[in-house]
Amino acid sequence: MSARAIWKGEISFGGVSVPVRFYSAVEDRKIHFRLLHEPDRTPVEQRMVDPRNGKPVPGEQIRRGVETDTGEIVMLSEEELEGVVPEASREIEITRFMRQGKISYQWYDRPYYLGPDGGNENYMALAWALEKERKEGVARWTMRKKRYVGALNGENGRLKLITLRYAGEVIDAGAIPRPEGREFEPMELQMAGQLVDALTGDFEPAAYRDEYQHRVRELINTKALGNVYRFEKPKRRRPETASLADTLEQSLAGIRKQKSA
């Protein structure tokens, strides 16, 4: 059941070099529709049109440009655009290793699985060492004409690389002042702690699914068979409000009751 690699590169730091293959860890499960021209269901095309005469401009005549803050457009030639594209390279440079958990969750963007490309031993040794030492590497590489930064991790003897957002793309949580107020009574903290404990379980991602996508798929399958889909709206409940201590107490009582039942 192995999939096709999307890219090949070589992890390098110090005297280490580990050739790897890239696989996307994310699978697009969303249903994508084609836009059709209704009378005969011809798939629609999008064309770039000159707003002055309403005529489409052929691809080879289209130019590209960037709008500036001053409200002007700077036109860029193909050569100029090509000039800023990073140079192709197979190197995945690891610049540093940090303790796991040092990178705030806000930075993580898109995960890739890495598989060994050729020799297995350095790959395995790196995966195990990272996991055992609870370390995470910071990686930089150029893949398909784009520069990436990422976090390299080891898990169950395998390597994964999660791209990180660029500096400036993450809004610093530290810049928001924490809300202040009086110290809490020990009682309040204790009850809140008990409530969280009572509601604590394992993270079970498989217990959730995108119900909307699921219903859309059902609709399509039903129609494809020539049947009629029955629409129903899912209902959601509304909570009530009351004072903090009382509601904590009531919440706890409710959970205790459920558990003993």
Partner: peptide
């Protein structure tokens, strides 16, 4: 931005 040869921004239209 996608532009006409003289720099006029183009708009996307369905065909």
């Amino acid at each position: 931005r996608m532009l006409a040869p003289d720099g006029t921004p183009l708009v996307r239209q369905y065909y």
